[in-house]
């Protein structure tokens, strides 16, 4: 891994997987080794909107978006967040847990129904055909 590590704005990026591993508008799970031990990461990929859609809405002008949050669901204790449904609440992207259906904001991991609970988030970006994560 070290060979591919790059320094970018004081953040250490490491490659996590290939962009081909992502599923548009949905999630996949990846295994991440960090200094604090391993973690399961749920990756969500929202490709740029299809500009041909006839009625533009406020989300239509966004670029590709990718988010990395905990795959571990704090409510059920199971590693299932990547298997939830992606959506938005009031324009803010969220993931719904597939077990008990709580929503977590992809931006900061906060649970919408119970804000004292949250998922960890990692900075993540696309670099060519690679998905890079800062951990």
């Amino acid at each position: 891994m070290n060979a591919a590590t790059a320094i970018d704005n004081d953040v250490t990026w490491q490659p996590l997987c290939r962009t081909a591993d992502l599923v548009a508008h949905s999630g996949v799970a990846a295994w991440l080794e960090t200094a604090d031990g391993p973690a399961q990461v749920a990756l969500f990929f929202l490709p740029a909107a299809d500009r041909s859609a006839s009625t533009p809405s406020k989300l239509d002008d966004r670029p590709h978006e990718i988010y990395a949050v905990d795959n571990h669901d704090p409510f059920s204790g199971a590693n299932v967040i990547a298997r939830g449904i992606v959506g938005d609440i009031g324009g803010e992207p969220v993931i719904a847990s597939p077990l008990y259906k709580q929503h977590f904001r992809l931006g900061d991991g906060r649970c919408v129904e119970k804000p004292e609970v949250g998922l960890r988030c990692w900075p993540v970006k696309l670099d060519g055909d690679r998905v890079m994560i800062a951990a």
């Binding site: 508008h25 859609a53 009625t55 989300l59 449904i85 959506g87 938005d88 719904a96």
Partner: peptide, 19 residues
């Protein structure tokens, strides 16, 4: 879904409307 939400809805959808 993308065609439907583009023409008749807004946003990304959610765990209610998507299924």
């Amino acid at each position: 879904f993308s065609e439907l939400i583009g023409k008749h809805g807004q946003g990304l959808g959610c765990d209610i409307c998507k299924p």
